[in-house]
Design a protein around this nucleic acid. Structure first.
Lengths: 384, 384
DNA sequence: CAAACTGCGGAATACGTTTTCCCATGGCGT
DNA sequence: ACGCCATGGGAAAACGTATTCCGCAGTTTG
């Protein structure tokens, strides 16, 4: 059910390419870069060929040159087309996109604002967006909000100056701030000006939205663990203001509903590896009780927890089941391999672009399924 | 060890954020998106406020409005500035970047071409570039070459149309193709037109270049392992046409030079986790001989190898030392923690931008040091 | 055979800015 | 008083392209 050449259906391949070397003596590389002036870019001096040049070279008018190169509604005699093409090639002409944008009144740009490119979560989404954009002949410009709502607002504002066809924002997770309202206002403004906006992993906003089914995935995970014989759980979650964490937590609980399993212990901690580690230590410290498995609301927390358990003399997968969420690449390399739920990140990026390009209701919401992936960190429990 | 709010200096944090939910019933999320028309973006219909509007609203001329908002060399009476500002705010005016670009004759854009955004290697570099660009008030547009030289060439070509101030390309690794020559030609062209080009992890090209010291890092790793008592090695490497692999391999050998250690066994395999796994199986299959440690030219290979060893009944870090390269996040989470050499990826992105913005020699080469990080996968060998 | 039509080239205009040039005003020195 | 300079506003000319409109062939139609 996947497109063959371009899109890897599952981002399962943990390949990590890398690169060539240096030209300095291997032993003594230069220091971390002399802090060159980081603020004042020099303006380009030389100049590129213009359509005017091409027209002159080809011995035709600018209008004809334009028509020949971009094939408008009007026709141009074959001979002239050839001459213009030749001239363009000779002069290495490349149309000035800004000029085109201004003449045509529209750009071929999609603006993508993410929270952090270095984060695999967002970079995978970005990959999906970029792929779809390229297929549609669009150029993507990217901005990083760094988790700051103010920065995000500022970005969207200046982005509007680019007059992109589409704005896609992923990573905003602010709840009910005035900054948030301003953002909505800004985006609405943009849309009434003819732009198209799509949000990723956002909810209940009057824009096109693609979401990932955190609740459903967690619920399914809970059911899968029940099926493997686990009944007594602990949940490691982050602050409830963190929407993702809350959704996954609640989803897990709802999956347990009606099973008769006791309410899980809940440990609030950081959304990071160290958070998971810390929560696990706390759990061990207070006595494991009869907890059979822990669900951490993301994989890095789960992995941190596994390490902590091991440090306490417990072997994950044998003495205690562990499950995470996200299905990040190392989940399969860790020992034991981590049960998790895979989220279709790239697919989310693709879908966002599709939504933006479609002519349908521009405020449609589009949920993407998350898929539970059972591994040896949660083996079947021996039936007593 | 975690980033406070904004920019983590070291990309060491393995955090994997995630996100909110869905609006559909958790159990039955919709399929993978109706394939909406993916080719014909609709042109924006409504229109945004223009400088003309602002001027009229403020009761001044366009020239004054322009000067008031962007503060040129000329002064504007305070009262008029205030009125223009107010009008701009009221109309939600945002200057049309394309129009500005065309009027000023230069953009504030930096074009970044990477091989694959989803790859942490490149996305981390991209993060560095983006950060530096933002600090310099520049906008970054990103294109993905997907490892295809032709695509890369095409991208650079159309990129020229954007008239960016700077082009940064990372990921090109083609050797001596005619496509490669065309790329060089294209970039040269761009530079003579006033643009600035910086390459990352490329060598011996007449452009600004920042490289990562693969050879030096590998050599240092070799020496560090010697110091821990290892003398007999195997090297898992990829095809020598892969520059990175070759550099790291050769660097490792040069680090062994003069130590009297025997020449390592060499195993050629894929540059991936499975490649490492396969090579390790081969090594085990032929009998380990007296190999004491293996150096895999990247971390995922090393991690794959560890798993393979374990499957063969050997415990990594006890029965066999394992070291990798890149120091990817999971290196520290894997069991045992993996010895590796850290590459300053984000720093590479930052440096590239600095190079581009500096007024120095535009073809300067800038090597970045790689740092060996010893962990428990290569403990001290008991001195016999 | 005149009239209408088609095909295509070019001049001119538009797009939204910045910037140059010109002009009006007012303060100052002599 | 008179010229000068400083200050700041506005008209207009760029910037590089797309497009509208006009005009000139050449061709079809009645």
């Amino acid at each position: 059910m996947e497109d063959p050449p371009p899109t890897p259906a599952t981002p399962a391949t943990p390949a990590t390419p890398a690169f060539p070397g240096t030209s300095a003596p291997p032993a003594a590389p230069a220091g971390p870069a002399a802090p060159a002036g980081l603020t004042a870019p020099a303006a380009p001096t030389g100049s590129a060929a213009t359509l005017h040049d091409v027209a002159r070279e080809a011995g035709v008018s600018i209008a004809t040159a334009s028509r020949a190169l971009n094939g408008s509604a009007r026709n141009v005699r074959a001979e002239n087309v050839a001459r213009v093409r030749a001239a363009a090639a000779k002069l290495d002409y490349e149309p000035h996109l800004s000029a085109q944008a201004i003449a045509k009144g529209s750009t071929r740009t999609v603006a993508l604002v993410v929270r952090d490119v270095a984060d695999p979560y967002f970079s995978t989404i970005a990959a999906g967006v970029t792929q779809a954009a390229t297929e549609a002949g669009l150029i993507v410009t990217m901005a990083v909000a760094d988790g700051s709502p103010e920065r995000e607002l500022e970005i969207v504002r200046t982005l509007r100056g680019q007059r992109p066809r589409i704005i896609i924002v992923t990573g905003s997770r602010i709840e009910g701030t005035t900054t948030r309202d301003a953002l909505i206002e800004e985006l609405t403004q943009y849309r009434t000006a003819g732009g198209r906006v799509v949000l990723i992993s956002q909810r209940d906003l009057p824009f096109g939205t693609v979401t990932i089914d955190d609740r459903g995935g967690s619920a399914a995970l809970a059911r899968a663990l029940l099926a493997r014989g686990y009944r007594r759980f602990a949940v490691f979650h982050a602050a409830p203001s963190l929407r993702t964490s809350r959704d996954r937590h609640e989803g897990f609980l709802s999956g347990l509903d009606g099973s008769g399993a006791p309410a899980p212990l809940a440990f609030e901690t950081g959304f990071t590896r160290d958070g998971g580690h810390e929560a696990a230590r706390r759990l061990v410290g207070r006595g494991m009780g009869d907890v059979e498995a822990v669900f951490a609301v993301n994989d890095v927390m789960a992995i941190g927890a596994m390490t902590a358990f091991r440090e306490a003399g417990l072997i994950p997968g044998r003495d205690i089941g562990v499950a995470g969420f996200d299905d990040i690449a190392p989940a399969v390399d860790v020992l034991p391999a981590l049960t998790s739920v895979a989220v279709p990140l790239r697919e989310a990026g693709l879908t966002a672009m599709r939504l933006a390009l479609s002519t349908d209701d521009p405020t449609a919401h589009h949920p993407l399924p998350a898929q539970v992936t059972l591994r040896s960190s949660t083996p079947h429990r021996p039936t007593p």
